[in-house]
């Protein structure tokens, strides 16, 4: 069970010699740090397959973090970074699949269901109008009379 927990001791943790800064991955700007955070949370670890590379302790995840770090420092944009990892490890590493032919159903599910549902309800409401225009207009007296009728009917 829980492959993710078999911690891969040792290795990994590529070390950087930034003695003065505490961060494991130090950045010049908060924006870059946030990008790093987001990117590492959007990439799936090929080894511990149910973790993103930010959380995984597998050596490969730390290699991938290091690569993301290196590319951010080198000024690459998010797309370039993700693409370069996809080129090595496959579409699999994207936790958010691209919109493409084979993922159309996936992306369209919720909007489609809502659209169909709302249309069905609209049709129902419009249809219901012709049925019982009078029913809602019943006075309490009429209603009581109707219920009495009903009871008599049931008793029979």
């Amino acid at each position: 069970m829980i492959r993710a927990v078999i911690l891969f001791v040792l290795i990994g943790c590529v070390q950087y010699a930034f003695a003065t800064v505490n961060d494991v991955y130090p950045f010049d700007s908060d924006a870059d740090r946030e990008r790093f955070q987001t990117l590492t949370e959007e990439l799936r670890c090929p080894k511990c397959q149910n973790q993103d590379i930010a959380d995984s302790e597998a050596p490969i995840a730390s290699d991938m973090r290091a690569e993301v770090y290196r590319m951010i420092r080198a000024g690459a944009d998010n797309e370039t970074i993700v693409d370069s990892l996809v080129a090595r490890f496959g579409e699999f590493v994207r936790f958010k699949p691209r919109v493409e032919k084979r993922t159309l159903v996936l992306w369209a599910t919720a909007p489609l269901v809502i659209l169909i549902g709302v249309l069905m309800i609209a049709v129902m409401v419009i249809r219901s109008r012709r049925y019982s225009e009078h029913a809602t207009a019943l006075t309490p007296e009429q209603r009581e009379r109707a219920e009495r009728l009903l009871r008599e009917h049931d008793a029979r």
């Binding site: 959007e42 579409e91 699999f92 994207r94 936790f95 958010k96 084979r102």
Partner: peptide
């Protein structure tokens, strides 16, 4: 047989 992909938290 259309390959593998991952659907996770960001999606």
């Amino acid at each position: 047989d259309m390959g593998r992909l991952s659907i996770g938290k960001p999606f």
